[in-house]
Write a protein that binds this DNA or RNA. Structure first.
Lengths: 138, 138
DNA sequence: TTATGCAAAGATAATCATTCTTATTTAGGA
DNA sequence: TCCTAAATAAGAATGATTATCTTTGCATAA
């Protein structure tokens, strides 16, 4: 998977740097749509000299190249998702947890609905559900 | 409608102040889910002495008392919606425009879907669609 | 081998939205 | 009218993010 990631960088004409690898690995390991801050804290142990600006710049580069997605939240800090295929999110209203949610049947249902119920003066590109609620422990 | 708003404030035990009235009127007039900045700019003409901190505090008070909703965006500034009943949003990917979208049939469709397709370990409280796309001019 | 070019990273200052602090003012009931 | 809690003003502080400017690393050409 590491090699996989390196290949993706190269496909996009991006250099494979230790910082980029470390940041991507951090996101995979952190695993709950981390903030830039989470990532910085995580990397600090192995890469104490990594610069905050670099993290933000690398994250932007990844988003531009579709290696990451930004996740909308109510709060002020952006979160990142290594899962770039189309999917929805479950937001917990008590904790900061955000889970991915995939549901092909639901997608079809919605897409069929809009085939027969066009929104006037609007061309749909993408539909995402924000499902707010509460996780049963664990 | 002005009297209406004053009554709402009083019902909640909130004082009716010129600032609160001005801020609420601004949001109604601005009419595209304004940011705090939009509101401040708008009010400046009639209330040159209104304080930035006041605007933020009043907005928070309104949100707490369900006179406004916050709207999630990809950007860093929060936007506000005087339409507090449950509804979805249309986001333009080219401009900052956000429109409300109501669709009772769609809500039923989705709600029925989740009756038969429970999400494991998650209790749904609310579902909102972020429909991204492009408005045809106008 | 050495020079050149350029993307990437480091350091840190700057920005921008938002929040906080403290003093002052005001709305609305007694 | 007076009183008091609630609300506002002013502006400093915070925190996330962006910008700037310099340096580094590495590939390619001379």
């Amino acid at each position: 998977m590491n090699t996989d990631f390196r290949e993706k960088l190269q496909e996009k004409g991006l250099k494979v740097t230790p910082q980029r690898v470390a940041i991507f690995e951090a996101i995979l390991k952190l695993n709950n749509h981390p903030t830039a801050e989470d990532i910085i804290a995580f990397i600090k142990t192995n890469h104490p000299n990594i610069s905050v600006g670099t993290v933000y710049k690398v994250l932007d580069t990844f988003v531009e190249n579709n290696l990451l997605k930004k996740v909308k939240t109510e709060k002020d800090s952006m979160r990142y998702d290594p899962h770039v295929a189309n999917h929805h999110h479950l937001y917990c209203y008590e904790t900061e947890r955000i889970d991915d949610y995939e549901d092909e049947k639901l997608n079809e249902l919605i897409s069929n609905h809009f085939k027969t119920h066009k929104i006037k003066n609007f061309k749909i590109q993408d539909i995402k559900l924000q499902i707010t609620g509460k996780f049963n422990n664990q």
